[in-house]
Design a protein around this nucleic acid. Structure first.
Length: 443
RNA sequence: GGAGGAGUGGCCGAGCGGCUGAAGGCGACGGUCUUGAAAACCGUUAGGCGAGCAAUCGUCUCGGGGGUUCGAAUCCCUCCUCCUCCGCCA
């Protein structure tokens, strides 16, 4: 969410920024509603002020023991006169009250529309972000690692998984429909190994591991920017007005909502391993094969909540990107870093770097990580603030990035580490989590 | 799920329907004192929205929403959360 004052003073810039993100929002209507809202508040405040003052006067005039009553007596007023005065004031009030009521009735829908519109205004992208319409116009920043050349015909992860009996997609689909799967034996272990490695690396770097709810109230989804836009991507538990999160970013970022932290508590660095639920609405027919695009996966996520400082945000953005790169490097996977263009950026993101890991079966780099910074976008929605050195209350900045998401990351691991005989070498970093074994072979 | 009890400022805790956005205490911050620190003493210490260049002013908020009343933290209704007892249970 942006500051309404900023929007008022930068209408054209806000529109341009929204257009660059290819998001539609009605800034003109918002400005109009905002003007009306302020007008009404001014009127209401004035009337309420009158009512309050007169109400107190009535109280004094009705109470013989009050100083006001006594003063009137001393001024030579009779009891009847005082009562008449009280009645008169009360009658005035009786006229004002319906006015307030009616203004409030006008104000209600205006406020609601105001709030709704505010939630649809996107955060402008950083000037460093390339302008583009979709992911095809993301800009590659650098490539790391050598892409393996096979001296035999490599299999894809689906075939490998089936032959090694570690991935069973058919039965997953039988239970839960398309885009579901099961992991078996070493498949399940490999999945968990990757997550544990990632979490251990984050703990070493000072991130506090958390276990958080993945079924959250809708306001948490609004607060982090996933609602109202994107509501169709979430699994809803409508009976309870709750939603399954698509990432632990949601509960981690919202953890301190409605709080005013002290500056000394910042930066807060959390990581959490969680289930992630995604409907993948609108993705019908896309990435239908294998473990790439699925409804349920597990992820270790990193979140930083820091001071309201652009340079600091950028510094932490680099840090969380590096954390993830280190994990991918520890796994020995080739990848590239992409500067995501405006059209592929979410509502709230100022800038986003994706890590794309080489996947032989796609013959391309595929997104495995996504590092975003938001500035105040989420914290304004969440009312997440801190008191700075000058005792001023300010909105925090937030950032987040994947540490590892599995089973998607199993695609490059299985495919790149496969051997001619159909076995898969276990990356060294994962061996401690796999009983020290060096390879996965058919049981 | 059944029966009771409770929700006040960073925390504890008072609060008769009016002068209470809220006593008192703790904590925190600033100051006096001290070589320094402690103690003691003095002072400061909610957030939102709006108006204003600003000082400042107005309004809203005592779990949320609604109602009674000229006036509600204080009365009524409702929802939420927490605690205790009973039942069920990973």
């Amino acid at each position: 969410m942006l500051d309404i004052k900023f929007i008022r003073e930068n209408v054209e810039a806000v529109k341009t920024a929204a257009a660059a993100k290819r998001l539609s929002c009605d800034v003109d209507r918002l400005v109009e509603v905002d003007a009306r809202r302020r007008e009404l508040q001014l009127e209401l405040d004035t009337l309420r002020s009158q009512v309050k003052e007169s109400g107190q006067l009535v109280g004094l005039l009705r109470n013989p023991k009050s100083p006001g009553y006594q003063r009137a007596i001393q001024e030579g007023k009779s009891e009847a006169e005082i009562k008449a005065r009280a009645d008169a004031v009360q009658n005035e009030l009786a006229e004002i009250k319906p006015k307030i009521k009616s203004l409030e009735e006008t104000e209600g829908p205006i406020l609601q529309e105001f709030d709704e519109l505010m939630l649809t205004i996107p955060q402008p992208a950083d000037p460093e972000v390339p302008i583009g319409k979709d992911e095809t116009q993301n800009v590659e920043l650098r490539k790391v690692g050598e892409v393996r050349r096979f001296e035999f015909e490599p299999k894809d992860h689906v075939a490998l998984g089936a032959e090694l009996d570690i991935i069973d997609i058919e039965r997953g689909v039988k239970l839960s429909g398309s885009r579901n799967y099961t992991l078996k034996g070493d498949g399940a272990l490999l999945h968990q190994a990757v997550l544990r490695l990632a979490q251990d690396m984050m703990i070493q770097r000072g991130f506090v591991p958390m276990v958080v709810p993945v079924l959250v109230k809708e306001e948490v989804m609004y607060g982090t920017g996933y609602f109202p836009t994107g509501r169709d991507q979430a699994y809803l538990c409508e009976r309870d007005e709750k939603s399954l999160v698509g990432t632990a970013e949601v509960p981690l970022t919202a953890l301190h909502c409605d709080e005013i932290l002290s500056e000394a508590e910042l930066p807060i660095k959390y990581c959490a391993m969680s289930m992630c639920f995604r409907r993948e609405a609108g993705a019908a027919g896309k990435d239908t094969s294998g473990l790439y695009r699925i409804h349920l996966f597990e992820k270790v996520e990193q979140v930083i909540i820091c001071r309201n400082d652009v340079e600091e945000s950028k510094k932490f953005h680099a840090e969380i990107l590096k954390n993830a790169e280190d994990v991918v490097q520890a796994l020995g996977l080739p990848y590239r870093i992409v500067n995501v263009c405006t059209g592929d950026l979410g509502m709230g993101q100022v800038q986003k770097y994706d890590i794309e890991t080489w996947m032989p079966s796609r013959n391309a780099y595929g997104e495995t990580h996504s590092a975003s910074r938001f500035y105040e976008f989420q914290t304004r929605r969440l009312r997440l603030r801190y008191r700075d050195g000058a005792k001023t209350v300010r909105f925090c900045h937030t950032l987040n990035n994947t540490v590892i998401a599995s089973p998607r990351i199993l695609i490059p691991i299985l495919e790149l580490y496969q051997n001619r005989d159909g076995t898969v070498t276990i990356p060294e970093a994962l061996r401690p989590y796999m009983g020290g074994r060096e390879r996965i072979e058919k049981a």
